[in-house]
């Protein structure tokens, strides 16, 4: 109950912040929230399930393009566009996962990377359907139940989506399913000997996280009312991977910290060092993997542990 109230308070605060920001800050803020949602689902896929997959932005892009194309070309109602998008994403993710999760580390990485490149090539050569390199625009969020949702109210919708993503992943993480994912990541042979169906578990983890990425993509489509291939490039995928590593692989809080730090960093360091932030991220990742493999979040561990011990003592009294 206490954790539920904490979450509710956090979401309300995030919504409230949306009402205080100007239009430029609002745009930055919404994208930050979307990055956090992506970071959380990618952390489950990569950090908890242990699958080094570069396909996360494919599913983000899929969700965004699907909803945009549904509105522009197919004139579908919004609810139908969203529901069908998530359904198709789930089927596609499962179909991709069934052969590819059999692949080990580097092979999965390169297979999903190839998939991402093919996705971009497909969009670029999609002519009118996808708008090619310049992207697809000229649509806007249709009224929902008669209300036109815009400005901070749309930001609140994104916060809601982020909250949903967080709750789903947090509950999965704390369940026997999340534990099974970690066990497979740490030692697949031992996990299977303890009764865990490793291929099935990996496919489910891949599918759920990919659908969540597509959900974020659907919300992304109405941030600029434009979807263009540049947003789903390999560079973005690398940054997402780096965010999770920097924050703390395998921990929800770590993913949030990593996304916030790396997303905000360019705004602060660009005036100092110019356009070198991507290079700096690469160097930071090497340094952290070597000297702080548990990420920035591990700096808070002593505090968290002390609090847990205090709570334990209190409970025993």
């Amino acid at each position: 109950m206490k954790s539920f109230l904490t979450l509710l308070a956090a979401l309300l605060a995030l919504c409230a912040l949306g009402f205080l920001l100007g239009s430029y800050e609002s745009d930055v803020y919404r994208k930050l929230l979307l990055w956090i949602a992506l970071g959380l689902s990618f952390n489950f896929l990569f950090g908890i399930s242990g699958q080094v997959a570069f396909s996360h932005f494919v599913f983000l892009g899929f969700g965004a393009y699907w909803v945009a194309i549904s509105l522009v070309h197919w004139d579908l109602p919004l609810a139908v566009a969203i529901a069908s998008g998530l359904l198709v994403a789930a089927v596609a993710a499962a179909m991709i996962a069934i052969p590819s999760t059999r692949l080990e580390g580097p092979y999965l990485a390169l297979a999903t990377l190839a998939l991402g490149q093919l996705f971009l090539l497909g969009i670029a050569s999609g002519r009118d359907l996808t708008g090619g390199d310049s992207g697809l625009g000229g649509y806007s969020l249709p009224p929902i139940l008669g209300f036109t949702v815009k400005g901070p109210w749309y930001t609140a919708c994104i916060v809601l989506m982020l909250g949903l993503t967080y709750v789903i992943l947090d509950r999965l993480d704390r369940s026997s399913f999340g534990r099974a994912c970690r066990a497979i990541r740490d030692n697949q042979t031992a996990a299977q000997a303890m009764g865990i169906n490793a291929p099935r578990t990996k496919v489910i983890a891949f599918t759920i996280t990919s659908v969540l990425a597509s959900l974020a993509g659907i919300f992304y489509a109405f941030v600029d009312n434009l979807v263009a291939p540049g947003a789903f490039s390999l560079e973005s995928m690398f940054i997402l991977l780096f965010m999770v590593i920097v924050g703390g692989t395998g921990r929800q809080l770590g993913a949030i910290i990593g996304v916030v730090v790396l997303y905000m960093a360019p705004f602060f360091i660009e005036p100092l060092i110019g356009h070198y932030h991507f290079m700096a991220f690469g160097a930071l990742v090497v340094i952290l993997i070597i000297y702080k493999p548990n990420g920035l979040v591990s700096m808070f561990d002593p505090i968290l542990k002390r609090r847990r011990m205090a709570a334990l003592e209190k409970a025993q009294l």
Binding site: S175, F177, A180, R182, A183, D186
Partner: peptide
């Protein structure tokens, strides 16, 4: 063959995996 990234109790709980029946 311990699961190195997990707590001791979670390691033991993996053995009990087959008794967790609920759906996702």
């Amino acid at each position: 063959m311990a699961f190195k990234g997990m707590s001791l109790v979670d390691n033991v709980l993996i053995g009990a995996h087959r008794r967790f029946k609920g759906s996702l």
